[in-house]
């Protein structure tokens, strides 16, 4: 019975899924197509097939432009900044959120509810409302246009969500696991590191990826809080210029967009299996 129900449902789901998939993939394909067009093909519909969609002749000139050509001075440092900022923000955020969530899930202390509510409250504020005051503060204390100057706002953006997700994961792990570890001779720290963290791995990876994406894709903070030295890729794209002021640097922007999408795709492919919950099955009676 269960099998037949599954099969019956599949058709309907596919019918609904196909338009959604097309809807989401077209902008990505379009970006890729634009990045592969030469300057001429961008201007003339005749050089393209499928109704001006795909270039007849694939050209790598946009990629040459951003890696070795005129835009490389802007793009390569921005790429480096992006990687440094995002990796640091992710690592710090995951570590802090893991400790905080563990405390919330396991320990009784005054103000526990307040921490959770405040964490949620912080994420209510629109990002743009924080930018102007932050800009002033950062300039006065010398954090403007520095890498820590970006990491700190990203942490404040991602920590609340990370704490909530991880607290939920920790609460699912049976207390007995930890007690068993303690009886087996583990200190609280060993029980946490060897039993709790591996079991919460799907949650840890989920929060890690969310943090990375938030930081990687952020534009508002990146454009407002940086100048030349700490500018990340999304902000740098806005400073691309064409050969003349009348020419849009479309191809270069698209090529850069494709390049910065690649790490995201790789991350998702690597970790999608680990994000699957249900790792705890079999821990206790099942």
């Amino acid at each position: 019975m269960a099998l037949r129900d599954d099969v019956k449902g599949t058709g309907t789901y596919s019918l609904i899924a196909i338009p959604i998939m097309i809807w989401t993939i077209i902008p990505l394909l379009w970006t890729l197509a634009l990045s592969l067009k030469s300057t001429d093909a961008l201007a003339s519909a005749d050089a393209n097939i499928l109704g001006n969609f795909w270039p007849r002749q694939v050209s790598w000139e946009n990629y040459q432009l951003i890696f070795t050509g005129g835009a490389s001075e802007l793009f390569l440092p921005a790429l480096r900044n992006s990687i440094v900022v995002c990796l640091s923000a992710t690592v710090i955020s995951v570590v802090l959120a893991t400790f905080c969530a563990y405390a919330i899930a396991r320990l009784q202390f005054p103000g526990k509810r307040m921490i959770l509510t405040t964490a949620l409250g912080v994420s209510f504020f629109p990002v743009i409302a924080m930018v102007t005051p932050l800009f002033d503060v950062w300039r006065n204390i010398g954090l403007f246009d520095t890498i820590p100057g970006l990491i700190i706002p990203y942490l404040s953006l991602t920590l609340p969500l990370s704490i909530w997700i991880l607290a939920a994961f920790f609460q699912q792990i049976p207390w007995e696991m930890e007690q068993a570890a303690q009886v087996d001779g583990a200190t609280t720290w060993q029980a946490f590191r060897k039993v709790i963290v591996p079991l919460a791995a799907p949650g840890v990876f989920t929060t890690g990826i969310i943090t990375f994406f938030t930081a990687w894709n952020d534009f508002v903070f990146a454009i407002s809080l940086t100048s030349d030295r700490a500018r990340t890729v999304p902000a740098a794209l806005a400073f691309f210029t064409g050969a003349s002021q009348f020419e849009q640097p479309t191809g270069g922007i698209m090529a850069a967009a494709v390049v910065v999408t690649i790490p995201v795709v790789i991350l998702v492919l690597i970790f999608q299996r680990r994000i699957v919950a249900g790792l705890t099955s079999g821990a206790v009676k099942g």
């Binding site: 007995e176 583990a186 705890t280 079999g282 009676k285």
Partner: peptide, 20 residues
């Protein structure tokens, strides 16, 4: 003494095996 310093071993009702 903490549980780890008592040198006792215990079997739990729900086994509490480490699933990973």
């Amino acid at each position: 003494l903490a549980p780890r310093d008592r040198n006792l071993s215990m079997v739990f009702q729900n086994y509490a095996l480490y699933p990973h």
